[in-house]
Amino acid sequence: MHPQARLSGRVSVKIQFKTGGSLVEHLPPGTQGNTVELEVPEGATPMDVMRQLCMPTGENYLVSLNGEVVVISERGKRVLAENDHLAIMPPIQGG
């Protein structure tokens, strides 16, 4: 849990989180595959999730929430709710 969340006594929400490629190594130890249930502090945004997982917080990811694109300017603003499906996908190989 985010240290500040613990201090302020806020509760957390559970989300379904999916990622891919090299970002999979940032998932909690023991995760099978590329999808995991995450507990995040109430009020957390996609950007907070990236920080929680120690992902590089670059702008070069594709972020979607419940099937909707979250554009760069919204990634630190959109608040996650219980059972949300968040996907943060790194760049892929073209060819």
Partner: peptide
């Protein structure tokens, strides 16, 4: 040459479902 990402931002306010693309 560190990768590419799908061009989907213009679909942000639509009901078109997006995940990896």
């Amino acid at each position: 040459a560190t990768g590419v990402s799908p061009n989907v931002d213009f679909l942000a306010d639509t009901a078109v479902r997006i995940e990896d693309g």
